[in-house]
Amino acid sequence: MRVNFTVNGRPQEADDVWEGESLLYVLRERLGLPGSKNACEQGECGSCTVRLDGVPVCSCLVAAGQVEGRDVVTVEGLADFAKQRSEGGCATGACGTTLQDAQQWQAKGTDSQTGEGTELSPVQQAFIDAGAVQCGFCTPGLLVASDELLERNPNPSDADIREALSGNLCRCTGYEKIMDAVRLAAARQSEGV
């Protein structure tokens, strides 16, 4: 089958999709967007978390056909997504992203091999600065989930952060630096840094 949907603001068309393929498979293997990770294929680990019409979902549990006509944001588009949001006159971030807003922005391409000079979202930068990245396999999913948390709750308590990220497994860090990263991103956001 053919699936038409929007990924990181760009219309995409995936052909020859087998009905059993997940959104995760189509992103990774058909659209060249391997940022979303496959670590369990059961919705237990959160490594494949993307936004589907603004809602964080495990893309491994979404059948590709279900995203027809819908809007997906992956870690690859997170920086532009966050930028778009901050420029959208929603300084607190608490107003969330409307579907219309989500469909109007577009991720910029990057051809950087080293990633140097790449523009990052606050939460991406905070993950690096706080030491929240080790092997990094859980990072894309955690970033999407953390970004969504801060969008809806710019000043989360520790208990709020733990609750919001409880669907994302990390095996390297013991989560302490991830907590630090989300706190840091929230603090920077509130200071307007």
Binding site: T110, L120, Q125, F127, P140
Partner: peptide
Amino acid sequence: ESTLRPDGTLKVTGEFAYSSDMW
């Protein structure tokens, strides 16, 4: 010093090529 990871940016942007991302 607590210098930052050289692969940090690639890992937070989804660009870092894990073995399962090879194509």
